[in-house]
Amino acid sequence: MDIAVLDRSAVGGNSHLHRAAPRSKLLAFALVLASIVVSTNLFVVLALLFVLLAVVAAERLPARSMLPLAAYPAVFAAVFAFASAPDALAAALIVAKAVTAALAAVTLMFTTPYPQVFAAVQRVTPGLVGDALLMTYRAIFILADKLADLTRAIRLRAGIAGSHPIRSAKATTRALGGLLLYSVDLAQREYDVLVLRGYSGRLKVAEHPSRSPAADRVLVAGALALLGVATVWRTCWTSLIDYSWMPLALALLGLGATFLFRGRNR
């Protein structure tokens, strides 16, 4: 998982979504998630997926980095679906839900700097948890780089090779052992730095105000509309079931139109 790309996009991007308030984005994310949870209609879930894809395309977000991350849970969901679903329909629904929810989460993270996301989480969690979240996310970058360096060093010495699984496993384990000791030392250094900067048991993150209130309103209204459609299809299914293709067709049209306008505006 290349989370450095994620962070670059979240901090350096300038789309409407980047300009919206983190609070609005979190609310919209929760509403989209609720839409996925209440939906049991494959067409509706696919419509939600295509709407999210249209948003990614319209906002010119780095889809090449986002889509593999969003598709990753599909592998595990497919295993679960294969193990438990009775037919292709149920299996497809499980996989579609996994990918749609992941795409919603990834879109949030690609458009919002992580301290802003965790600032909201911090408000509802104990101080220890909020601080640990911030430190964890920051440390992932450092440790991922360090592990990549260690693995590269071992690979250069022919320590990792597909034809020698035992030697490869030993080399990977040694790299992880070294990484563990490095992590412990890093934790101590982090604490020293924090104390020097006046850390007293609570990292405070100021929430960024919205740079585009209009984007906030559109975002939340759009997410509410999605939840509305999902809920209506869920509760009035007997009347609407014959029209299940409509949300999907509309979402596909929207995606097509997005690509068309994107091409013209290039």
Binding site: L128, M135, A139, L143, T172, L179, S183, L186, A187, E190
Partner: peptide
């Protein structure tokens, strides 16, 4: 004492997350 260990919690959690992205080759 616990405050001192907050960075350790963060970094060990990150280590767990990073190890999840590290596959044992070729399995």
């Amino acid at each position: 004492d616990v405050r001192r260990k907050v960075p350790l919690v963060g970094i060990i959690s990150a280590l767990v997350l990073v190890s999840m992205s590290s596959e044992i080759v070729p399995i």
